[in-house]
C-alpha cells in the first residue's frame, strides 16, 4: 500500500471547505464592511476556489470510507450520516461558488457586482458554513468516539439526523436504479454540457493565443460568453455528481477518475486567473497577450482535453485497485 493514499488526501482536503470557507467568508464580510473592491475580488476568488476544491474533498471521502470500513468500531450509519451531510453541504457550497464567480464576472462587466448577487452570496455562504460545520462534526464522530455526545455507539447511530438519510449513497443509488431513464438523461446532459463548455473554452483561449480570425475579438466581448461555459460546466457537475453518488464503486480508487479530478481542479485555477487578473482585460482587438496569459490559455485547453480523456478512460485505466461495494 502506498505511504500516502486518497484517504490521507481526504484528511488534508477536508480543511479546505471547513477552515478555508471560514477564512473566505470572513474576508468576504470584511470586504463588504470596508467597501474594499480589491478585498472583495480576493474573497470572491477564495470562495470560488473553495467550491472547486469541495469536489475532490467529497470524492476522496469514499476512499477514506474504504480505508476504515474493516476497522473495529466502524459504524456504517455514522459514515452514511457524514456522507449525507457532506452531499448537502457540497450542493450549497457549489451554488455559493457559482454566485461568487457571477459576482466576479459582474465586477468585470459592469465595474461592480450586482447588489442581489452579493446578498445571495452572503446568505449562501453563511448556510454553507452551517452545513459544512455539521458535516465536519458528523465526520469527527466516525473515528473519534471521545468527542461524540455519547460514548454509546448505538445511541450515537440512533441520533443521526433524518434529513441526511435520504442523501446517502444507497438512497441515491436506489433512485437511479429504480428509474432507469435517470442515468441516460444524465449522460445526455453531461455531453451537452461538455459541448457548451468546450465551445466557450476553445473560443476564449484561442483568442488569447491569437489564433486566426479570433484575434479580431476584444477580450471584454469574448468574456460575455463565459456564463454559457459556466452553464455547461454546471450541467456537467450536476450530472457527474449523480454518476458518482449512484455508482461510487466505479469511481473510487480509479486512477483515471483521480487524474480527471486533478485536471479539473487545475483547469478551475486557470479559469480563476482569467477572471481575476487585469492583464487579459487590456486585450483589445488584434492585441497580443503576455506569455503567462498564453501559457494559461494553452494549459486550460490541455487540461479540459485531459478531463475529457481521463473521463472517457474511467472504465479502462483503473490503476488496479478496487473499492468494492460502498
Amino acid at each position: 500500500m502506498p505511504a500516502v493514499t486518497l484517504a490521507h488526501a481526504h484528511l488534508l482536503l477536508n480543511h479546505v471547505p471547513t477552515l478555508g470557507l471560514i477564512f473566505a467568508v470572513a474576508l468576504f464580510l470584511l470586504s463588504l464592511v470596508r467597501r474594499n473592491d480589491e478585498l472583495l475580488r480576493a474573497s470572491l476568488g477564495a470562495l470560488f476556489l473553495v467550491a472547486i476544491m469541495a469536489f475532490p474533498t467529497f470524492m476522496t471521502g469514499y476512499a477514506a470510507r474504504v480505508a476504515i470500513r474493516s476497522h473495529p468500531g466502524f459504524s456504517q450509519p455514522l459514515t452514511d450520516a457524514h456522507q449525507g451531510a457532506a452531499v448537502m453541504a457540497l450542493i450549497v457550497i457549489e451554488i455559493t461558488g457559482a454566485g461568487a464567480w457571477a459576482a466576479l464576472w459582474q465586477q468585470r462587466r459592469h465595474g461592480f457586482p450586482r447588489k442581489w448577487t452579493l446578498i445571495s452570496v452572503v446568505v449562501l455562504s453563511l448556510i454553507s458554513l452551517g452545513l459544512v460545520t455539521r458535516a465536519a462534526n458528523l465526520g469527527g464522530d466516525i473515528s473519534h468516539p471521545e468527542i461524540r455526545f455519547t460514548q454509546d455507539l448505538h445511541e450515537a447511530e440512533a441520533a443521526v439526523p433524518n434529513d441526511v438519510k435520504g442523501l446517502t449513497t444507497p438512497a441515491i443509488s436506489q433512485i437511479v436504479t429504480n428509474y432507469r431513464y435517470v442515468w441516460p438523461i444524465c449522460e445526455v446532459v453531461h455531453f451537452i454540457g461538455l459541448a457548451l463548455l468546450m465551445g466557450v473554452v476553445l473560443v476564449i483561449n484561442l483568442r488569447v493565443l491569437g489564433v486566426g480570425t479570433l484575434k479580431g475579438m476584444d477580450y471584454r466581448d469574448v468574456h460575455k460568453l463565459l456564463p454559457w461555459g459556466v452553464a455547461g460546466f454546471t450541467f456537467n457537475a450536476i450530472s457527474g455528481m449523480v454518476f458518482f453518488i449512484a455508482q461510487p464503486q466505479t469511481y473510487t480508487l480509479n486512477l483515471s477518475f483521480d487524474l480527471k479530478m486533478l485536471a479539473f481542479v487545475l483547469a478551475g485555477v486557470t479559469v480563476l486567473y482569467q477572471t481575476m487578473f487585469d492583464e487579459l482585460w487590456a486585450l483589445t482587438k488584434y492585441g497580443g497577450a503576455s506569455r503567462v496569459a498564453k501559457f494559461m490559455a494553452a494549459a486550460q485547453i490541455t487540461l479540459w482535453v485531459g478531463v475529457l480523456y481521463f473521463g472517457r478512460m474511467i472504465p479502462y485505466l483503473t490503476g488496479g485497485a478496487e473499492a468494492g461495494a460502498l
Partner: peptide, 17 residues
C-alpha cells in the same frame, strides 16, 4: 471512443458558440 468524444467537443462546441 476518446477521439470520438474530443470530436464532439470540436464540432458541437463551435456550433454552440
Amino acid at each position: 471512443l476518446v477521439l470520438h468524444t474530443i470530436g464532439i467537443a470540436l464540432t458541437a462546441g463551435p456550433v454552440a458558440v
